[in-house]
Amino acid sequence: MSAAGIPQLDEASKKELEVFLEQEQAKAKLQASIHELTNTCWNTCITGSISSKFSKTEAQCLENCVDRFLDSSLFIVKQIEAQKQQL
C-alpha cells in the first residue's frame, strides 16, 4: 500500500507511515498464521468431547503440534530439494 494518496503530510512522514504500515502488515500476517495453526492443531489434538480442561494427551499434543508442523514443513522442502537434484 502506498501512502501517496495521503495529503498534508511531508515526505518524511509519508515514508515513516509506509514503514509502519509494512511492519503492521507483517504482524497481521504472523497473526493469520497463528490462527491457521491453532485451527489445525485444534482439529488434530482435540478429539474428545469438551470438558473444563484438556486431557493430558490433548495438552501434550497441543504442546508438540506447532513444532512438529514446522518440522514437517522443513522436511517436505528438504525432500523436494533432494528429488530435484536426482532429476
Binding site: 469438551i50 497441543l62 503440534c65
Partner: peptide, 14 residues
C-alpha cells in the same frame, strides 16, 4: 476458554 488456551499455546510455540 479451551480454544483461547490453545491459541495462546500455539502463539507461544510459534
Amino acid at each position: 476458554s479451551l480454544y483461547m488456551a490453545a491459541f495462546d499455546q500455539v502463539s507461544r510455540s510459534y
